[in-house]
Design a binder for these strands. Structure first.
Lengths: 346, 346
DNA sequence: ATTTGATGCGCAATCGATTGCATTATTGTG
DNA sequence: CACAATAATGCAATCGATTGCGCATCAAAT
């Protein structure tokens, strides 16, 4: 029992394949009667469109490629989920690939998507990437490209991200409001724009509150758990250690939390802690980790609909740059005045 | 500048497209000289195979579909990563979809993969699924299907999973060895085989060590955090509460851990705790959560290579059922005799 | 010198749907 | 009733690569 094609339907009804094709795609020039008949035979014969043939002829695959560093962060998987929702609502299928934060894999992922002839790509750039030629290959071939969160300023590309500066500023200001004055910062690699912004937000918040910036309280790293541990250990050895740490990533913050607990420090009384990303686990460590939520859901929706707009009218391209305002999620790790328990999840 | 095709290469060299096609696919009947020439022109003209056309003609898309409940558990994303590795090594691209543990989405995912005409599917069944007809649709169409972890006994299907029974048995035995005697169990939905097995393993371990099974210490749920919290709260209200909990999922275990901390209980002295899955966060909560590792990497490798074997010889199908032995990862939440620190990661 | 076999390549059909243009059916209008 | 206008369908090329079969060439073997 080989697959049924439009030819089978056509011969069954004594009409031509063209008519069947048009009937199935709801062409206005086909009579309602024929359409009905075709649809009936189609279901009866269990017809399923050969999207490959359609893609070959029409040049559209109805596939949307996604490239993310990894899927096992709730941020990324949540973005993906919401992209999927919007995309499938418009008959697009989604092809997900992971770069594992390696430029080489990112490259081969893009190659794969190019081979698969996706109609567009939504990506968040790998931590390692310094050469963007593979992304250009997409736009050069007229494939819409939307970057989110980890973005770069490329031609013919749209962007959606959060205001990292503001997120960092608010986090730092919150710590200050809690009475902290020696606030350390675990900064990410400054070649990534998001980490630069977070650093700036931190610095400006200090300045605006007349707190001197202290170089000794600053630690650059990959902001993974180990880095947070190392950073915290270093900080605790200072003659005047910090009374708060704002980490550019939840992972670094968790590393710091581990060390603090091991050393018998109280959180937030001795050292308050804030992360960034709102990873799932931040809500169930003890104490809950205050963090900055990145609006993954909205980000995915916007990225997907931006893509859709761009495929709709490929002729008139408009590069969108959308910046969302992040949301501070206050939990136990930073809340000293425990009178008001203002935990708030979205 | 439209895409270059084999026709362009052919006319450049005054040969036919067939020869070009054969040269590029390294056909033995093409001379080394022609192959070289073709390859050179191909790179010069920046030729990229139109895989859609190839797929249409050959009936092979070189795409492998994946269906998982969610990608944001480290178990699943790790399995995916290792599937990707094996698959791409054999020139296969991977298309990932998430069911969000909903039967309906699982169905539409399979439909999408069917439309995309993937050459095979590797899946882990959704928690909700009770009707497997969509999976049958695959095998009916001759598409190899490999199930992992959350499996079902379908025709013409291969399976790779861990020995959940043994994992549970060892976890329980470990608790007993640590001196626990009132061991509670948070069981998952018994319609899922893995949770049945884990329950059996728990029960048998008790029996083998002459500990009476106490119905009051058993809690069925979806083994999410809330369930763990609820279960632990109930247990603590018993007149003789448990001195250990073995949860069928890390999430339920974390919920229990939260409640224990809130009530001022010491872990593991008052209540020891073991989870299942070896989620990333289990290693950085405090104390570290003892858990059962599911060998995600190996599972992915086996699933992928099983798929590869089946596409190689579609004629002679052999249904493989592979069962791996899980590994108990002992951490602070269950280690009472803190003399030997036997943390072991893979 | 002829046969045999291997080697290298071309011809043309094919995969299944799409689509511009041509053609036929249908309806309405004067 | 004729003729235009419109609606509905058919024709045939096309997307780009693959592949079975056939033909030619050439070296080795008889």
């Amino acid at each position: 029992m080989s697959k049924t094609t439009i030819y089978d339907i056509a011969s069954e009804l004594n009409i031509t394949p063209s008519t069947v094709s048009r009937a199935l795609s709801n062409h206005p020039r086909i009579s309602a009667r024929t359409k009905k008949a075709v649809r009936e035979v189609a279901t009866r014969l269990n017809y399923r469109q050969n999207s490959i043939a359609a893609a070959l002829r029409s040049g559209k695959t109805n596939m949307l490629g996604i490239v993310v560093p990894t899927t096992d962060r709730s941020f990324f998987s949540s973005v993906i989920r919401s992209i999927e929702q919007v995309a499938t609502a418009s008959e697009y299928n989604v092809m997900i690939t992971q770069s594992n934060d390696q430029e080489k894999m990112e490259r081969s992922n893009i190659e794969a998507l190019l081979r698969a002839q996706v109609d567009g790509v939504i990506a968040s750039i790998s931590r390692e990437t310094s050469d963007y030629s593979h992304f250009r290959k997409l736009t050069d071939n007229g494939i819409p490209l939307v970057l989110f969160d980890r973005v770069a300023d490329l031609n013919h590309t749209s962007i959606v991200r959060i205001d990292d500066y503001r997120g960092a500023y608010e986090a730092t200001a919150h710590l200050i409001a809690q009475g902290c004055s020696r606030i350390a910062h675990f900064a990410g690699q400054q070649k990534l724009d998001i980490y630069q912004q977070r650093f700036r937000g931190y610095k400006d918040a200090l300045q605006d509150h007349r707190i001197a910036f202290d170089e000794a309280l600053l630690h650059y790293s990959n902001v993974k758990i180990e880095d947070g541990r190392a950073g915290m250990n270093t900080l605790l050895r200072l003659k005047s250690p910090p009374d708060a740490v704002f980490a550019a990533s939840d992972y670094a913050a968790i590393g710091a939390m581990q060390v603090l607990k091991e050393k018998g420090k109280r959180i937030p009384e001795d050292v308050a802690l804030i992360g960034f990303m709102n990873e799932t686990f931040t809500s169930f460590v003890d104490p809950g980790l205050t963090t900055v939520d990145q609006l993954s859901k909205k980000m995915g929706e916007i990225a997907a609909s931006t893509f859709l707009e761009q495929v709709e009218c490929p002729d008139e391209f408009v590069s969108k740059k959308i910046i969302l305002s992040p949301k501070l999620i206050v939990r136990g790790s930073s809340l000293k005045a425990d009178s008001s328990s203002m935990e708030s999840n979205s």
